[in-house]
């Protein structure tokens, strides 16, 4: 029943034996043991399970793990370099965009995908890019600020700005 496949997660190869019916979220969390990716609704609505697959924001709760063999998967654990946070993570902290934190991994990855494509998004573009990531705590205002700030950090403009 189980299939042996190779998954590339955050640049590292994992050989996993999984059911062809296993969803990527469960394989990432349970089989591989990376619990940064969160599981909310399980049916595509909340965005908590967002990971990047070949750079594109993808819902891991409605993606089969077998379908990801040969692709580059990035989870929230893959963003920082050692103890140095990625600028998007830094910006979320600096701007107070994290409360309970459940939505944060998905928010950060959706934001990274946006900024990779569009380094200086407008507020509307940020709202559009994050419309599939629900947050029940922050009211979104600080998240949007954080993404704008991250854009500046990534283009090297934010160094002297007050946090």
């Amino acid at each position: 029943m189980k299939k042996l496949i190779k998954l590339e997660i955050n640049g590292e190869n994992f050989d996993v034996a999984i059911s062809p019916a296993a969803y990527l979220i469960d394989v990432i969390r349970e089989t591989v043991g990376l619990s940064g990716t969160k599981k909310g609704c399980g049916v595509g609505d909340c965005g908590a399970c967002t990971v990047l697959i070949d750079g594109r924001p993808t819902l891991s709760c409605i993606t089969l793990a077998v379908a990801c063999a040969g692709k580059a998967i990035t989870t929230i654990e893959g963003l920082s370099r050692g103890s140095e946070l990625h600028p998007v993570q830094r910006a979320f902290i600096d701007k107070g965009a994290v409360q309970c934190g459940f939505c944060t991994p998905g928010m950060v990855l959706s934001s990274k995908a946006l900024l990779d494509e569009n380094p200086h998004p407008s507020q509307d573009e940020i709202k559009t890019a994050l419309a599939g990531n629900l947050c029940r705590c922050t009211g979104y205002a600080k998240i949007i600020e954080a993404v704008e700030h991250a854009g500046r950090l990534l283009s090297g403009e934010g160094c002297d700005e007050q946090a």
């Binding site: 594109r56 924001p57 993808t58 819902l59 995908a113 419309a131 599939g132």
Partner: peptide, 8 residues
């Protein structure tokens, strides 16, 4: 849908 849905 959402950006994620559109990429899928």
């Amino acid at each position: 849908g959402s950006n994620q849905v559109r990429w899928m």
